[in-house]
Amino acid sequence: MNRLSVSRLFHLNNRKLFQALIARYSVDTGSKDYIDGLVKDDNVVVFMKGTADQPRCGFSNAVVQILNFHGVNKFSFHNVLEDESLRQGIKDYSNWPTIPQVFIGGEFIGGCDVMLEMHKNGELIEELNKVGIRSVLLDRIEEEEKK
């Protein structure tokens, strides 16, 4: 490859990258269409303050802990503190006024209180099961029964 084509290729890639960035950042992250895509992106999707590793709110942290407790360590999360448009958009989308918000199988499940309640009454195990996730709590329950 001669020098000229290398520089042209570089130029082309740069332009593509530039266009990709424009496309990405001109998306309205608070729009229904965009959020529709996000919630269906993964079996479990959490809109939270901070990240799964470093939640920045006690309620967001609680939701992550509950999921982890059921062995759900891999899930999609979106940090609303990094995106004001998404922060408002997700509230409008689910008609729910607070963060965190949990979606399982594209369906809105609830916030922290609902998750905690569903964890306590066993419904969470069923909800996870619907999307093919087996809660590790089931293994523990079975082990206990064997004893």
Binding site: W96, P97, F108, C112
Partner: peptide, 26 residues
């Protein structure tokens, strides 16, 4: 169901919820 109940509460205090940061409920 639980989600519905929470939604009813959220609606009842909709104006206030805009100012409230966290509302834990049973």
């Amino acid at each position: 169901p639980l989600l519905q109940r929470h939604r009813m509460v959220n609606t009842a205090i909709e104006t206030e919820m805009k100012e409230i940061h966290a509302f834990q409920m049973k």
